[in-house]
């Protein structure tokens, strides 16, 4: 366990040693504030609340889970897996006295921690932004519910992490893996327009399942079904990914 923890810390240290990661964290921090002028314009110019301050953070989360966070996850996963395979730096990791199952797990844990950190950052930033809206008085109203929504949104993002790492294993350069991840994600989202009936079985359909956790009455059966689907997908991606990683010649 100690070994796994240290390998994860090692992966995170590599991740945050990149300037790019810090810049992208800054972007995630600023984006919630970028939505403010648009909402203010609606409220002052058109007189409609559009997004009330107690709903602002959830609206930001809807946009974030749709494409901003998946994009950041794809970038990180491709750097962490394809990038290291491509520039052979993965050899220095493999030469340590840690077996490959722990290395692959540590990479994914690092991805999860990074994703959770991003979510926390976006949560804090968007709640702070909500207090800058004219009707800030009720911004504190939906705080608990919003926190639940943010926590719930982590699960489909974690599944996306396992899927992105799985795709990235097949590439020797980060940009190739990133491009394919984005294309696959866009295709999966686009297919929903053509085959709405089959898309209930696709994990990307549930990127915004956090919305089901809002509004007081939780549809328990539905939540359970989606939870098992997401967990199942995550496990299948993780185990097959590990198997490929274990057999890989680098």
């Amino acid at each position: 366990m100690e070994l796994l923890k240290r390998t994860t810390v090692n992966e995170l240290a590599k991740l945050y040693a990149r300037k790019k990661t810090i810049w992208l964290l800054a972007v995630a921090l600023i984006l919630p504030f970028a939505g403010l002028p648009a909402v203010r314009q609606l409220q002052d110019g058109l007189g409609v609340a559009g997004v009330a301050s107690d709903q602002y953070a959830v609206t930001i989360l809807n946009v974030m889970t749709l494409f901003v966070l998946p994009l950041l996850i794809f970038m990180t996963a491709s750097d962490m897996v394809s990038g290291e395979i491509g520039d052979k730096t993965i050899r220095s990791v493999l030469s340590r006295p840690v077996n490959r199952s722990k290395i692959y797990a540590a990479k994914l844990f690092a991805l999860f921690v990074h994703t959770a950190g991003l979510l926390l950052l976006v949560f804090v930033a968007s709640e702070a932004a909500a207090f800058m809206l004219p009707d800030a008085g009720k911004a504190a109203g939906g705080l608990a519910e919003t926190a639940v929504a943010y926590a719930a949104s982590a699960l489909p993002l974690f599944v996306l992490c396992t899927a992105a790492a799985w795709v990235a294993l097949g590439f020797k350069n980060a940009s190739g893996a990133l491009t394919v991840c984005i294309l696959l994600y866009a295709a999966a989202k686009g297919l929903a327009l053509v085959f709405p009936d089959y898309m209930v079985f696709s994990p990307v359909t549930y990127m915004n399942w956090h919305q089901l956790w809002l509004g007081g009455s939780l549809p328990a059966g539905r939540l359970f079904a989606i939870f098992s689907l997401l967990l199942g997908c995550g496990m299948v991606f993780y185990t097959t990914g590990y198997y490929v990683f274990d057999k890989k010649e680098v």
Partner: peptide, 19 residues
């Protein structure tokens, strides 16, 4: 084990009427 449990969960979700 991972594959079995993972696929079992997928099947569960299908039975839990996700379709």
């Amino acid at each position: 084990a991972g594959l079995t449990i993972g696929s079992a969960l997928l099947v569960t979700s299908a039975f839990a009427d996700i379709g």
